[in-house]
Design a protein around this nucleic acid. Structure first.
Lengths: 135, 135
DNA sequence: CCTCAAGTTTAGCATTGGCTAAACCTATTG
DNA sequence: CAATAGGTTTAGCCAATGCTAAACTTGAGG
């Protein structure tokens, strides 16, 4: 590859960034699920699949399928036709997510951004913020 | 649904946020591609698929497949075994992406965040920032 | 001009995350 | 205690994004 002789390290660094984004995306959905489940348990005492579907804006069937993966990943437990519970790892992830979410949303609000925008943007940004930036 | 009687509007607002995130994700990859292609054209005079693959950290075959979609979407043009060009829409998208990228990265740097972290985080965040927050 | 290495594309597969429609439980109520 | 309404799961589909291995072009050198 003769044309890449000039800057040897650059491509590797950039691809690392994109790799991390792809990795973030796969955990992102899991985080959204466990965070929402934690909220539902706190708010209502239990988390039902249909409520998760409603709040995420997806079909029930999608939730069922995703919960199966989360269960395989050790984040939630569930009996058929019963409500959803978080495992220890699930609670931990939910806690992390809530923390990031709160920091980012609070920061955006402090910047003078409207509540609606802050909520929406922080939901998207929270998964891409490193510890350093959080501080 | 008797148990949802208390806060009628909340679920809808939250699901809107998640819907936007899912929509963002599908355009995100396209933005990364066109932005990178624009950079390559500016830097080297041409954008080759293999260089795109290298910088994104994916396999050549993946790039080929994605470029086909981008071509269908009217963002790029390409002849087999030739280098990649952007359409007018492609250049526009690349410009938007670069702008957001620069604002976010500059902001993170101004916050005192290290260069490496700023680069990585801004790559992830740029796609989830609304116009309002950008301002 | 022919050959061959390097670069590109195709073929075929897996996973994730969506959907709808149909089948299936559960729990309330008559 | 049987019927049934409503919530839940299964079945089966699709598109996007990734991979490897094999086939195919291209262009340089002999």
């Amino acid at each position: 590859m003769p044309q890449r002789a000039k800057k040897p390290g650059t491509a590797k660094i950039r691809s690392a960034a994109f790799r991390r984004i792809r990795a973030d995306h796969s955990s992102e959905l899991a985080e959204d699920y466990v965070e929402l489940i934690a909220d539902l348990i706190d708010e209502k005492g239990e988390a039902r699949g249909s409520e998760v579907a409603l709040r995420l804006g997806v079909a029930n069937a999608t939730v069922v399928k995703t919960l199966k993966r989360l269960q395989d990943g050790g984040l939630v437990t569930q009996e058929p036709y019963r409500s959803i519970f978080l495992t220890g790892d699930g609670w931990k992830m939910a806690g992390d997510g809530r923390r990031k979410h709160k920091i980012v949303e609070g920061f955006l609000l402090a910047l003078g951004i409207s509540e609606d925008t802050a909520r929406i943007d922080s939901e998207g940004i929270e998964h891409h913020v490193s510890e350093e930036t959080l501080r």
